[in-house]
Design a protein around this nucleic acid. Structure first.
Lengths: 256, 256
DNA sequence: CATGAAAAATGTGATCTTCACATAATTTCA
DNA sequence: TGAAATTATGTGAAGATCACATTTTTCATG
């Protein structure tokens, strides 16, 4: 049994029983306690469970609220690649905006190599991450907190953006189709849109799997972005359409 | 040697050496490792040092940046009393604003008894504390992050407040004199002022020791507050002046 | 498709941390 | 002042973490 399978099996167990002991897991999967510790550390890091002395638990209700934690764990390696490619667009001294559910914290790490910077964001994970970095001027966009997206949204957010300006905005999207980016949530679209309007240049971050998907609310045409970064080459039919329209993708390759 | 003296001695050591080992501390003060663990836990909890395996360290620069952490630790018991008295003014369903350096987190805890609530704040500790509380609608005021005050300030903050309204605003101050509240920092005054203007009722929180102190920037006259909460009775000369002006103090007594 | 180097996963034992409980010191207050 | 309550401290068992050694997997390339 592979490591990721075992982690998934641990999570499957936890939805039923709410608490498991470390010894139980070790004998069930026939691995050492150390290995179980490491698995639980990973899962706890991702916010999917909480380590307690002798085992792990999930709080009731975590299933719903941890959407963004689950997303943060998925494709972590691809996200790190994209984050490095994104950070390469940034020069020290610039002002950048970041609006991103599941990639913000990773992008924050990558941006640290480009300090000093001014960073503007409505993402709680990024704000936590950069708060104590002395050489980053951090501007939070306020707003109503959304547990689903782990960020701040609403008129307060949009009004704050209307008063600010940045050199570059990093925007992500879960769906691109017909040369347009989409999002399922109205309020998120408005925040992303306001951020795009407040920046001189715009960079779109998108997982290659999301090409060819649509969602209810249109965010922007791909031509509005100065850079589009993805982790792998999209399906060839999608790629053909993009290049026919003159859209250039930056693919963040493995050994960057 | 008493416990608090020993903790102070540990901190004194750390300003010189930046790192100490647990065993060293245990033999130096002739106490068990367990006792040193507990001391370090307390100090780490207060943010004054960081426990590491086998000892503790202070990051360079922590001396400057941890102002708010030190303030948060001081008079913790009195602050908890004031927080309970403040929370007593709140009814479930209300919208309250909190602008507070060192008392915000404690006030957040006290407010949990009055859920459901809408809480508006520019304080990072409070935002962290309330983020995952399902029955609290949390609205963050954005702004430029200040490491000194552990909160967000500036035009973004003030603009957000101009769009919001609350039933009650909790405002604290480090100085009250001649029936007026003061603060040493211009930007903090503007945020507090904006918050007061955005609320129907205003409650001032002040440590009794701060009566009779002034600071550069005037915040407001005491008559502008509907409630003034303090932890103990101020000096009698101050008290006389206050009652002569018809100002009523709420004193949060020990056994509340 | 072999193969060998690099990366990832796992195990081991020493060391450190935490917990629960027992005991001692201190404070509180009638 | 003296008993009760609170706070501080010690002890040993059980758990967690770390560094390092070993095994397994991955993957580019001959």
């Amino acid at each position: 049994m592979k490591r990721e399978d075992r982690k998934q099996a641990i999570m499957d167990l936890l939805v039923d029983v709410r608490a498991v002991s470390l010894d139980d897991l070790a004998s069930r999967f026939d691995v050492s306690r150390m290995t179980v510790h490491r698995d639980l550390d990973d899962l706890a890091q991702a916010g999917l469970l909480r380590k307690v002395r002798g085992g792990a638990t999930v709080e009731p209700g975590t299933q719903f609220e941890s959407d963004f934690r689950i997303r943060a764990m998925q494709d972590a390696e691809a996200k790190a690649r994209m984050a490095r490619a994104a950070a390469a667009l940034v020069e020290p001294g610039m002002t950048v905006m970041v609006n991103d559910g599941s990639m913000a914290a990773g992008l924050a790490d990558a941006l640290l190599d480009r300090r000093p910077l001014t960073v503007i964001s409505n993402n709680a994970a990024l704000i936590d991450r950069l708060r104590d970095e002395a050489s980053v001027r951090l501007i939070a966009l306020g707003g109503v907190y959304s547990a689903k997206y782990n960020g701040f949204f609403g008129v307060v957010t949009e009004a704050a953006l209307s008063r600010l300006r940045a050199d570059l905005a990093f925007v992500s999207t879960p769906a691109v189709n017909d040369l347009r980016a989409f999002h399922m949530d109205d309020e998120v679209v408005r925040a992303k849109r306001a951020m795009m309007d407040a920046a001189d240049q715009r960079c779109l971050l998108i997982n290659h799997k999301r090409f060819g998907h649509s969602a209810l609310h249109a965010l922007a045409g791909l031509a509005e972005f100065n850079h589009i970064i993805t982790d792998e080459s999209p399906p060839s039919d999608q790629l053909a359409r993009l290049s026919a329209a003159g859209i250039v993708l930056t693919i963040a390759r493995n050994t960057a």
